[in-house]
Design a protein around this nucleic acid. Structure first.
Lengths: 193, 193
DNA sequence: TTATTTATTGTCAATAATGATAATATTAGA
DNA sequence: TCTAATATTATCATTATTGACAATAAATAA
């Protein structure tokens, strides 16, 4: 016997608007004013539905990292049965699959993490999970490779990939993307002895 | 017949304080108030010596990237005559040589570049120069390697290195640093056929 | 000493961001 | 229709940031 709650919907709208603002202005620049404007809501509704600025930030980080993890898992699960690593590299370095918005948000969060131990911990966990997923995939496709070698290649592959995504933000870097992809292929080939 | 100008000195103090603030609060968070506080100067002196906020930012980017380029050149020139690449990798992945302040500033600038075409251009130029320097060094040490292979390894090595520096900001990543170094060594070894 | 140039300080107005709370409007069920 | 829960709007105080300019202090050369 009451008016139906829109909190879930409003919360999603607010976090989506916050995401857009972080991508556009950075974490510090994502003010509640801008978020409200972007969401088409009164600022007081942010408080009503999510909370104060700290609440909004941590709620956003939570959903953003969960979504990223989920997307990575999904990508890996969609790999074909053969030539998994080749396909993985194709996908990782295909500019069509690169989402600049996600990249700039990840960059912005990393920057902010320099002064936010809690945020740093969450990002660390996320990054470790990514490397671990790549590592597991490499191990599956190179069952005879040593653990140390798998660790190195997984870390290297991740590094090359993350860096390419980061540099993509600067624009006009397609040649570097190509060269990085070639490096990734070379690196993986070192597992075939 | 006038009071001697301190503009050069003050300007340097202000840009150094701006650097500290960017590292601590990000580009958006480096307010002139904080910069003045950090520099121990009245805010009006920033205006007097450098200009408005945009002037301060572009002056800072200018000096920061120039200094970085210079430091890279210097590092390369200090490499021994033998085992240059091995030494390079030792230096690049030595945590003692990693300056978190520089890294977080580079991250912050990259984030800001997503909405600042001029800044993006400057960062692009800087990154390209870095890759080119690595490339030249590799070519010198592997004179029989093909250009394409050198391009790939230079891009990959740069990517692994930049990514490690970036992740260092998150703390507690020494294992990833070790694995990344091993990956860098593997990648370079692919040039020896 | 004086004139001139510069450094330094002080003050003001305008704008923006946040937190908080009161007041009003809306909707579903009793 | 009435009630209760919720959404939405309105408003206020506080603080932070910037830009601008006036006023004062300091230092050097003539």
């Amino acid at each position: 016997m009451a008016r139906p709650s829109k909190k879930d919907q409003r919360r999603a709208e607010i976090l989506a608007a916050f995401e857009t603002c972080v991508a556009r202005y950075g974490v510090e620049g994502a003010t509640l004013e801008r978020v409200a404007e972007e969401a088409g809501l009164a600022r007081a509704l942010i408080r009503h539905n999510v909370g104060n600025r700290d609440d909004v930030l941590s709620a956003f980080v939570e959903t953003f990292l969960n979504r990223s993890t989920h997307e990575v898992d999904e990508m890996i699960s969609e790999l074909p049965d053969t030539k998994q690593i080749d396909t993985l590299i194709d996908w990782l370095f295909d500019p069509a699959y690169s989402d600049p918005k996600v990249v700039v948000i990840y960059e912005a969060l990393t920057t902010a993490a320099a002064n936010d131990a809690d945020l740093a911990k969450k990002l660390r966990k996320w990054a470790r999970e990514f490397v671990a997923a790549i590592n597991a995939l490499l191990a599956k496709n190179h069952p005879r490779a040593k653990t140390k070698d798998l660790d190195a290649v997984a870390a290297g592959l991740t590094g090359i990939y993350f860096n390419v995504e980061s540099m993509t933000l600067l624009g006009r870097m397609s040649d570097l993307r190509e060269a990085s992809k070639a490096a990734a292929i070379r690196l993986v080939q070192t597992l075939k002895t």
